[in-house]
């Protein structure tokens, strides 16, 4: 039995909006194991990003507990890396200097830094763009930079908040394949937030379906698809279709009830 990495106990979060209390997350409990790839899916505004931000220590829970390796989360935990939905590549730094950031912060300099950054650039297929500024790159390339910048400091836990949400389908599939390859190599514990069910099935071991706001756990689904996965072929398989319709049935209820 792999050890417990993240424990979420009766977690609730209420935001104040102009004197009104708006519940975002309501009594969520979830255990995430070491080396597990978990996807949080749900309709927009269901609080999935809020949960992720509480794991990352960016916001404090209103009630309940959030533990990483048994210790309550305060501030930003050392072992966690975070890939944002928004483009957070520093526009004033070149690709190389963006990827080197984490090493720079940790005092890793000189040839050691150069070697590791070079390796990351090669892995991400960014060779030839070392000295390019982000403004000249496509959205997919910028997200690759953001991903490698996070992975280069070798976080044990990787939080991803709809990192590929703004990309076209083709680029998205490529990045799925790359992310899976990188994950197979290091087996980080991943919590991946998305509203795209196909993305969740392609990547995750377990899918946590959340209800509409305030988010509660509606269903936890084990994705029984063998690894390593081929992101293209996977989608043609019967197992994929079967899993998709099972979860979609449950998720669809949440989407259907959503007041537009």
């Amino acid at each position: 039995m792999p050890r417990l990495r993240i424990q979420i106990r009766d977690l609730s979060k209420t935001f104040r909006e102009g004197g009104r209390e708006v519940p975002a997350v309501s009594r969520v409990s979830l255990d995430i194991l070491d080396k597990e790839f978990v996807a949080l899916v749900g309709p927009s505004g269901c609080g999935k990003s809020t949960i992720l931000n509480m794991i990352g220590g960016l916001i404090a829970p209103s009630a309940g507990q959030m533990l990483i390796d048994g210790a309550p989360v305060r501030d930003v935990p050392r072992q966690v890396g975070y890939v944002f939905q928004k483009d957070t590549v520093f526009p004033w730094r070149t690709v190389t200097r963006n990827i080197a950031l984490g090493l720079e912060y940790r005092g890793v300099t000189g040839p050691e830094q150069g070697r590791r950054v070079g390796e990351a650039i090669r892995l991400a297929g960014l060779a030839g763009f070392e000295e390019a500024f982000p403004a000249t790159l496509s959205g997919g390339m910028r997200q690759r930079v953001a991903l490698m910048r996070t992975l280069i400091v070798e976080p044990e836990i990787l939080l991803m908040d709809e990192p590929f949400g703004a990309l076209d389908t083709h680029t998205k599939l490529n990045l799925h394949a790359e992310l899976l390859a990188l994950w197979e190599a290091k087996h980080q514990t991943v919590v991946f937030v998305t509203h795209d069910l196909s993305e969740a099935i392609t990547l995750a071991d377990r899918i946590v379906v959340l209800t509409r706001r305030p988010g509660r756990v509606k269903m936890i689904h084990e994705v029984k698809l063998p690894r390593p996965r081929d992101v293209i072929k996977l989608r043609e398989s019967d197992e994929y279709a079967q899993q998709y319709s099972q979860i979609w049935h449950v998720l669809g209820e949440e989407f259907a009830g959503h007041a537009v």
């Binding site: 930003v76 975070y82 928004k86 957070t88 950031l101 984490g102 940790r106």
Partner: peptide, 15 residues
């Protein structure tokens, strides 16, 4: 300054 840039720096271990 975009708060997410500050957060991402903090996640990368910045003081």
């Amino acid at each position: 300054v975009d708060p997410d840039l500050i957060h991402s720096a903090r996640f990368l271990g910045a003081t």
